[in-house]
Structure formats: structure tokens, C-alpha cells
Design a protein around this nucleic acid. Structure first.
Lengths: 107, 107
DNA sequence: AATTAACATCGTAATATTGCAATATACAAA
DNA sequence: TTTGTATATTGCAATATTACGATGTTAATT
């Protein structure tokens, strides 16, 4: 039914899945990679760089912001989107914990 | 339009996003965690454990298999699903490389 | 051979996501 | 104060995902 039954899972499982999900789109991967290669990020650059419409990019940026991965600062009439390094590191740790604690052999 | 324009992105970006996407559902996180806590895995156990219908679990298992994260072996009339540790480790490394190379400060 | 058990697959309904044009907003420059 | 620039939001169409009942398949059990 296209609806995820989140109430069946632990908060940890839902959180983890949400991080994965937000990262699970190539445009969002590309946006993060591009931002990390710049000193500052201006959204319009992204439109040229990624090749999706401005509205679409804006939407993807919003999703990345929603899990705290990006900070957006207003700079006059431009926006400066930056990776939230602190948050980034926390999420990386959580994902690694998941990978390290879920690796066991069975057969 | 609900369709991801994969042709706009690099293969690496698409691959990475695909891993994230497959892991981006709490049922699939829960399945992996449950399997790793067992010695062997039988799908019917999962139906009881996770609380989704048998058909749904089967579908999720298929997606995890599709990126090589799970191996499925037939054992008589049962299935033994196991984490593919080699693949698991490769994917973990790729995700970590992404995280480590995409962390730079801008503002 | 019929039955049962353990999945897999198909079909389908409900909902979510992706993408964009159009429009709104906010600010700076002229 | 009008104009242009940068970004956000809205509305909508197309497609994808999630979930499950029904049905198929395969193998052990009777």
C-alpha cells in the first residue's frame, strides 16, 4: 500500500532507515559531493551542475536539511548550503555501528 | 515524475544511492538485524518476528538479495537466508569512503 | 498420491516519491 | 519603487514503493 508501517519497528530502526532513505537518491548523493568540493554552495550552481530543475533541487536540499545533514544560511539574496560536519559524523558513526553489529555469519 | 533520472548521474553515484535506498526501509533494517542475531534464518520466523505478511517479507528479502547483501540457500523445504559478509564489508567500505570524502567544511 | 509446510510470485490497491511549471517570496540594485 | 535575481512553495502528472490476498511451486510427510 505504499505506506511504511513504522509503528512495527523500533525508533532506532526507523531512524536508521530514514538516514539511508534520504541518502538513497543519486541527486542527493551528487549534491553532497558537489557541496563538499566547493568552499561555499549556491543553489543555482547546483541547477547547472546537476541538471535538474531548480524546484527539484530545492526539494532535494530540503530533504537533506530535514535530517540535519545540511545547514542553510541566508547570504543576501543567495543561500549558502553547507554540510553539517558534526551531524555528518554522528550519522556516519551510527551507520558504522549498524554495519559492525550486523555482520555475523550464519551459514 | 516519480522516476529517477539515473542517466544524469555517475555510475558510482547511482550505485551508492541504490545501496542506501535498499537499506532505507525499517523492515529491511530489522530483517538484517534479526538474521545477524540468529545462527540460521528461516523466513517464517521473520513473519512472526517482524509482523508483516509473508509475501511482504519475501519481497523485502528479494531486494536485499538484489544488491548481494543476503544469500539464500535452499534447505529442504525451508530457506536459509544469510548475510553475505564479504559483500557486506565491501558496501560498508564504499559508504565509509563516501562519508570520509564528503565531509568538508564550507562556511 | 494426497496433504501439508515453506516459501515465491502475481495482481492489485493505497500511498509515496520524483520532477517540473507556475507562482510566491525576499532581497538587492538601478 | 520598479526590476531582476535567487530560492521556496504549490499543484499536479507520472512513476515507484509498500503491503497483502490469492495462487503457484517445491519438497517432505503421511
Amino acid at each position: 500500500m505504499g505506506i511504511t508501517k513504522t509503528q512495527m519497528f523500533t525508533e532506532q530502526q526507523n531512524d536508521l532507515a530514514l538516514f539511508f532513505k534520504v541518502l538513497g537518491h543519486p541527486a542527493r548523493v551528487a549534491i553532497l559531493q558537489y557541496i563538499s568540493n566547493q568552499n561555499a554552495c549556491i543553489c543555482n550552481d547546483l541547477v547547472d551542475e546537476i541538471g535538474l530543475a531548480q524546484a527539484t533541487i530545492s526539494q532535494h536540499l530540503k530533504e537533506l536539511k530535514s535530517i540535519g545533514l545540511l545547514n542553510g544560511e541566508v547570504e543576501g539574496k543567495k543561500m549558502c548550503y553547507c554540510i553539517n560536519v558534526e551531524r555528518w559524523t554522528v550519522i556516519q558513526k551510527q551507520l558504522n555501528t549498524f554495519f559492525n553489529t550486523t555482520k555475523s555469519n550464519c551459514c
